[in-house]
Nucleic acid binder design. Sequence first.
DNA 1: TTGATTTTGTGACAAAAGTCACATCAGAAA
DNA 2: TTTCTGATGTGACTTTTGTCACAAAATCAA
Lengths: 189, 189
Amino acid sequence: MSHLLRNHIEAISPLSDEEFDYILSHFVLKKLKKHSFLVQEGNYVKYEYFVLKGCLKAYIADNDTGKEFIYQFGVEDWWITDREAFFKSSKATINIDCLEDSEVLGITLENREKLVAEMRKYEHFVAVKANLGYISLQKRLQLMIMGSVKDRYENFIQQYPHLINRIPKSFIASYLGVSRETLSRLYRF
Amino acid sequence: MSHLLRNHIEAISPLSDEEFDYILSHFVLKKLKKHSFLVQEGNYVKYEYFVLKGCLKAYIADNDTGKEFIYQFGVEDWWITDREAFFKSSKATINIDCLEDSEVLGITLENREKLVAEMRKYEHFVAVKANLGYISLQKRLQLMIMGSVKDRYENFIQQYPHLINRIPKSFIASYLGVSRETLSRLYRF
DNA sequence: TTGATTTTGTGACAAAAGTCACATCAGAAA
DNA sequence: TTTCTGATGTGACTTTTGTCACAAAATCAA
């Protein structure tokens, strides 16, 4: 029996049916309407989420200028949360909302720690994930500093091929760290 | 008996003398002269390093333009390596060299995995470290996109207060992602 | 369908940062 | 000390990107 989360974990740690069912029992399913918030600035962040369906954006709002910087999109097969608030049990400094009707699986910090403590395989999975996440973030930082806007856009297309015509260009611009006008002028030629 | 690495680990996981000695026995000490390389592009990366003394820079060279982007400085109490190459046992894409005579403790991937497998405390330590590292990298990315050069510079001063008059300004500029001229013009007033 | 938002592209101009050139200054080495 | 190399500051100019304004196109809801 195939499950998105199972495939996702098994890409790193193969599991028996029982093991996967046991893991899955620690998650709760949430169904969300477009425009609803999964995480909101100032609130505690009880869950870390695995996206099953839909599309979300995680962003930081600059209260002075009224602008926002999208640091991550959450689509099928991606994890999303306010990492700092989740792990430190502090209040969120970011917002996550749905660009489309979405379905996510949430796990609490307690359940996460329980699984990590009980299952070597899950522990290995999260350790590998943390590393890969760190590495890809580092690459993004590098691209942001050394790459032109065009480089960044091309990289984006590779990373999120389905998103280009699925979400407003202004969100992509925000993710790339440029104004929507500059992005718009990029693909005139 | 106090040891820089011990204090560093114990900030997260308290250890007995025996436990620390056991951990330490998995590291090798390296002493390096100024200008020597710790990691060089194209080579395999056998170790992850904890800096005891001195100052190093980790940077990516752009072969086209001849420029470099410094993504991290390694000073006392910091870890440094080519993370991707180290964990994936692939060839380095970055360089790390010494800005001063330096001393580092290196641990191989095998020893690291051995310690993680044997000692719950060490496993906890590296997991927490990975998380904190991810979070601080995320903040740096945010600052890079949303913050002005001045914001970034002020943040740098907070993070590395000892480095400002210890290393050339051009290195700081590279870390901040601007030209040295732009940085120079910042603190004219 | 229709009217109202939202999204998008684009021109004109402003602001920020990069590039090049050169003079000065400080520190390392002979 | 003297010489030399590398670091730093700064002016002049170029390039890139941002900002504002507005019109056309697309999308959404009643």
